[in-house]
Design a protein around this nucleic acid. Structure first.
Lengths: 136, 136
DNA sequence: CGGCATCCCTTCCGATACTG
DNA sequence: CAGTATCGGAAGGGATGCCG
């Protein structure tokens, strides 16, 4: 989900190893998409933008636990991938609004269904975890 | 997605800060679920188990780029959360099969729809990225 | 208000070696 | 085959300070 970095020793994914790029197009699509929105905050940002455009600090308040730095980084990344738009209104102080692109809206649909699952099943997961942890 | 660790200085999430636990139950469900399944490999493992149970090394071969260590860690985590079952057949050499629980199957549904989005839209994301990177 | 730059500690995770 | 243990580098990300 970050800007291009140059690997020094460790290469994250096998298929990005020099000479093993598999022609640069045949990577698993899910892997590729998760590499961009599968981080800690992207999904939450998208969910919070689904209803209407939101300003930077409002977004920051809405997403519990996110730091200013990570919100900025996450928004830039989503903007780069064509999922989020950034609109500056040159007032003083400036207002910056973030919203979803059409692509972003389309991604918000499966994400919302994941959110629905989360809301319905988190208790099941908690109970399973407790049971497992008791088992040893 | 990891076993319980004791934070030393930095606390990952605000709402886990001592005195700010929000009673230990009111955390955003999506955040909570993503903390367990939102890592690099869990989603891919679940997708690969959706059809039928798969043995350890078969799974390793199926998931491009995963290391043995991360496959083990990921499977343990999913098992702990009640999403995956582990079945040992005491032959020599031993055969260990992993499969989805009912809970895991139910999670596989929204995950599959995310996968469908990924397959349909990765080219859009690539193009958006190229355009953005040209823009500066 | 909405950022960016730097510092620096923490966590992740691949590589490697060893076991039942 | 299916793991576990350990190590060390790389990456993640909070805190802080400065800016238009």
């Amino acid at each position: 989900m970050n800007a291009p970095t140059k690997p020094t020793t460790a290469v994250p994914l096998l298929h990005t190893t020099p000479g093993f790029e598999t022609d640069g197009r045949s990577t698993c699509p899910i892997r590729e998409v998760l590499d961009r929105v599968g981080d800690t905050w992207s999904i939450l940002v998208i969910i919070n933008l689904q209803e209407q455009p939101v300003r930077f600090n409002a977004l920051k308040r809405a997403i519990e636990g996110i730091s200013q730095r990570m919100l900025t980084v996450t928004l830039r990344s989503l903007e780069r991938d064509g999922l989020v738009t950034r609109t500056v209104r040159p007032t003083t102080p400036p207002e910056v609004e973030y919203g979803l692109t059409e692509l972003g809206q389309s991604l918000a649909v499966p994400i919302a269904s994941l959110g629905g699952w989360a809301a319905s099943n988190r208790d099941n997961m908690r109970q399973a975890r407790e049971a497992f942890d008791l088992g040893t």
